[in-house]
Design a protein around this nucleic acid. Structure first.
Lengths: 160, 160
DNA sequence: GTTTGTGCAAATCATTTGCACCGCG
DNA sequence: CGCGGTGCAAATGATTTGCACAAAC
C-alpha cells in the first residue's frame, strides 16, 4: 500500500532536477534540452519504466527524442545514482528513479505484469548477515518475488 | 560452504538422465545424441553456466553441438523443470540444474564474478509472508546479493 | 517412411556506436 | 567559436527461426 500513496500526489521535481543539473556540471557535461526533458519525465514518473515506454511518454512533445539519446541519458543517470536498473526476467531492462524513494524490493505478477513494492527490514538484515558470513562486503541486492496477484482490475487471471 | 561439498564428489547422473528421457518420451520428443550429450554435461556440472560456456565444455567431443541446438535443448530442460534460468544482471543468461540441488539464493562478486549459494529459511518465510500480505500467490522468487568477495584466489580486488 | 531434430545462416530485438551536423557554454 | 551532444543508420551480441538435410522411431 506504500506505493499508491507515493503516486497519488503531484510530485515537485525541482529538487531532483537541481541534483541532476549539479551532477552534470560537476562532470563537465552539458545541460541540454533532451537531458532536461528526459530527467523531468523520469522524476515525474513513480512507476517502473523501460527505454521504450519512456520514449513513448515523451512522444507528446513536438520533438521526439531518439532511442540512442534516451539510452545515453539513462546511462548517465544510473551512473549519477539517480536511477536504478532492474532485471525482471525479461529481455529488456526496467528503470525507476531513486531520489525520494526508499529502497524496496518487488513482487511481480507473472499473469498481468503488475509490480508491487515492499520492504521488510528483517529480510534486509538477514541479507547483510548472509553476505557477511560468506566473506562478502555487500554492494547491493535484488529481490524479486514472482506470483499471481489478486487485482481484478488488471490481472487477466483474476479477470476471467 | 554447502556448495563445495556438493561439488567435491563425482555425481552419478543416471537418475537425472532417466528423468529427462522420461520427460522427452512423455512429450513425444526424440532421444537424440545431442540431447543426451548436453543433458549429461549439464547434470555433471554443479556450477552456474551459460549457453556459451556449455558449448565450450562440449568442445572436447569430436562433434561440436551448434548454438541453435544448445539453446533449443536448454529451453526444453527449463520447460521440464530440470533447469533454472538466472539473470545476474549481465546481458546473457545463466543456468543451473535443479535436480539434487536444494533451492538457494546467490551472492555474486561484482569484481571477480564468483557466485556463492546460500539459503536462509527465515528469509524464505518472510518472503512468503510479504507475498501473502500483498495478495499474491507466490510462484517463485529470485534473490541476488551483490558484493565484493574475499577470495584471494579469484577476486582481482583482493588480488592486487 | 514419416516426422522431428540439427546445423547453418539469416533474422530479431534491445542496446551500443560511428559519424556528420547541431547547439550549449 | 569549439567541443560535447544528438540523430541516424549501421554494428553488436545474445537468442531465435526458416529451411534443407539427417536421424529417430
Amino acid at each position: 500500500m506504500g506505493e499508491e500513496m507515493l503516486e497519488s500526489h503531484d510530485h515537485d521535481t525541482s529538487m531532483e532536477m537541481e541534483t541532476f543539473s549539479n551532477y552534470l556540471k560537476k562532470k563537465g557535461l552539458k545541460i541540454t534540452t533532451q537531458r532536461m526533458l528526459v530527467a523531468e519525465k523520469i522524476f515525474s514518473l513513480h512507476t517502473h519504466f523501460t527505454a521504450e515506454s519512456l520514449q513513448e511518454e515523451l512522444k507528446d512533445r513536438r520533438d521526439e527524442i531518439s532511442k540512442a539519446t534516451i539510452y545515453r541519458i539513462l546511462s548517465i543517470m544510473v551512473e549519477a545514482g539517480l536511477l536504478k536498473e532492474h532485471n525482471f526476467g525479461k529481455d529488456y531492462k526496467y528503470y525507476e528513479h531513486i531520489i525520494g524513494h526508499e529502497h524496496h524490493d518487488h513482487i511481480i505478477c507473472v499473469e498481468c505484469g503488475r509490480i508491487v513494492e515492499f520492504i521488510d527490514e528483517k529480510i534486509e538484515e538477514l541479507q547483510k548477515k548472509a553476505a557477511r558470513e560468506n566473506g562478502f562486503s555487500i554492494t547491493g541486492h535484488d529481490l524479486n518475488i514472482f506470483g499471481i496477484c489478486d487485482s481484478p482490475k488488471t490481472c487477466e487471471y483474476n479477470n476471467k
